[in-house]
Design a protein around this nucleic acid. Structure first.
Length: 271
DNA sequence: ATGGTTGGTTACCAA
């Protein structure tokens, strides 16, 4: 019997949406343009009762796995145009900051919203900073210890750390700014090394080139100032790295009317 | 060194 070997590809996007209900037009625009197969959102800022389930269903996303808080803080979601298997979230994460799902082809996709960590980069003075570092450390232990059901793992999300010198507009000026302090970077790299993740987005941009996914709302002209940071990441395990065929950060989406302060970050992966 | 903007449970808190 003849068989045709079909080659397929998966498009995956992570996006800190900063209120999913405020971004309907923006989300529609992005989906029409890029049509991700799997869309991972952070800071949905909506309780589960009020999550816009039918909004995504009408756009072709029949699968929706989401976790929100009544208070309107945090919130994460995984949307897909195909059935995914829901995997229980990591138990020590008590807030709505993490979800996992698995594709039919056996890829486990993690969606994280790591705490921002407050303003003062000192664990003795700032409990939010301690909370952030502790979570990164706990995740490192978890990934090391966990017996993973698949060696194909994708870690995505707003990790709230810009690890490389050229992940920020000024390495020197941000060394004491939460998101780029050596202490956080060290913890993030430890997580990166826990099961030998590879940076799917940097695969296509040299480490010596500036690359950002977030620009503050507070700039008078964010494009002109261009004081960005790369806080949003897509990491893949080694067995998937060769299959990553494309990566992009949709900076123009940050420039549309009523934007999130984060741009969507996406990859193509052949399966 | 300071203040700038945005979203949500709003008349403050977190980012």
């Amino acid at each position: 019997m003849l068989s045709v070997k079909s080659k397929s590809r998966l498009k995956i996007t992570t996006w800190n949406i900063n209120s999913v209900r405020k971004r309907s037009d923006l989300i529609k625009h992005f989906i029409q343009e890029f049509s991700p197969d799997i869309l991972l959102l952070q800071e949905t800022k909506v309780s589960n009762e009020l999550f816009p389930y039918y909004f995504f269903k009408d756009l072709g996303y029949s699968f929706a796995h989401y976790d929100g808080e009544k208070t309107g803080y945090n919130g994460v979601a995984i949307l897909a145009n195909q059935e995914l298997e829901i995997v229980p979230k990591i138990s020590f994460i008590k807030e709505a900051r993490h979800l996992v799902a698995k594709t039919k082809c056996g890829i486990e996709v993690h969606n994280f919203y790591i705490p921002a960590g407050g303003d003062v980069p000192d664990i003795a003075l700032n409990l939010k900073f301690k909370y952030k570092l502790d979570m990164l450390q706990q995740l490192t232990s978890w990934f090391k210890k966990e017996k993973h059901s698949s060696n194909k793992i994708i870690l995505t999300g707003d990790l709230n750390v810009a690890p490389l010198e050229h992940d920020v507009w000024s390495h020197k000026q941000l060394l004491k700014v939460v998101s780029h302090t050596p202490e956080e970077v060290e913890k993030l790299i430890a997580l990166y090394n826990s099961i030998n993740f590879r940076d799917a987005v940097r695969k296509f941009t040299s480490d010596s080139e500036k690359l950002y996914s977030w620009w503050s709302y507070r700039a008078k002209d964010w494009q002109k100032a261009n004081k960005g940071r790369r806080l949003d990441h897509i990491w893949v395990t080694e067995s998937l790295y060769n299959n990553v065929t494309h990566a992009e950060i949709s900076k123009h989406i940050r420039g549309l009317e009523g934007p999130s302060d984060h741009a969507p970050v996406s990859i193509h992966i052949s399966i």
